[in-house]
Amino acid sequence: MDGFLITVLSNIGMISFVALSAYILLLSGQISFGQQAYFGIGAYVAGIATVMWSWPLAAALVLGAFVAGAAAGLVGLVTLRLSGIYFAMATLAFAEIMRIAAELFVYRREIGGIETGPDGIDGFRDIRYLFANDISPFQSCLIVYALLVAVLATLFIVERTRGGRMLRQVGEDPLLAEVNGIDVMRVRIAAALSAGAVAGLGGGLYAHLLTYVEPRSFDIMLGVHALAYGLIGGLGTALGPLLGVLIDIGLLESTRVFRGYRMIVFGGLVAVLLIVRPRGLLDEVAISRIRQALRRWRHAGD
């Protein structure tokens, strides 16, 4: 496979983590402008773990996801009783605080004779774990997709459990959910926590595949894009946000068909698409149709 294709595929995979993160919160009925914060936290923490503490990659990724999830849970505790624009703005405020904190964050140490570590606004460079361990771009792309598939599989399983249903119920009508015996706050915190961890995992991968991360990598643009991907692709299934990423990065950014006019085309397209399908291409109705068709097809085979 040629290098360009691998890079594009890896990008699609990594951004999918943030899109899934925003999607999980969307399911719980909350609009977050700030999932990029947890992406950033995961990137810095995982990077520090391999570079400064010489941890193995797997452990570093787990730590990044864990810290990001914990941070998201804590932020959730104080913000999740807000809703609508209040919640959206609180998440954005937190993400911007984290981004500026990263601009101020300097933690330099001498590792193997070279000074390295996060260096304020210049970001965190030389995260060379993959190089140092002879992992090729193709192999690292495989790692990204293996983890993405694992996250997706977990989401699919959760969707079939009562917890997953509760998530959708809370998202659709929190009051009705409460009357039906669901502890809305608890469900939302669980959602925020897992959304933070998923974004953190993506961030850890990003830092290692690109060998650097800078505060600019997780500004508001990443957060709002992540939110948009779910709505474009559809909120009926976890594949929706992936479809959104695929359309934007895979089809438009990478094919260079509309070079220089990509956003003019894409922006208008998205607006029109949302008018026709306000919950995205693969929305609940589409998914329910597909399920019914599958069931009928299976019965016909009997």
């Binding site: 009562r162 249903r165 509760m166 659709e172 009508d173 015996g181 669901i182 609940e284």
Partner: peptide, 15 residues
């Protein structure tokens, strides 16, 4: 819950 199926609407209450 309009975006959920009939079955899923009943399932929640069973909780």
């Amino acid at each position: 819950f309009g975006q959920l199926t009939v079955w899923q609407n009943l399932w929640v209450a069973e909780n």
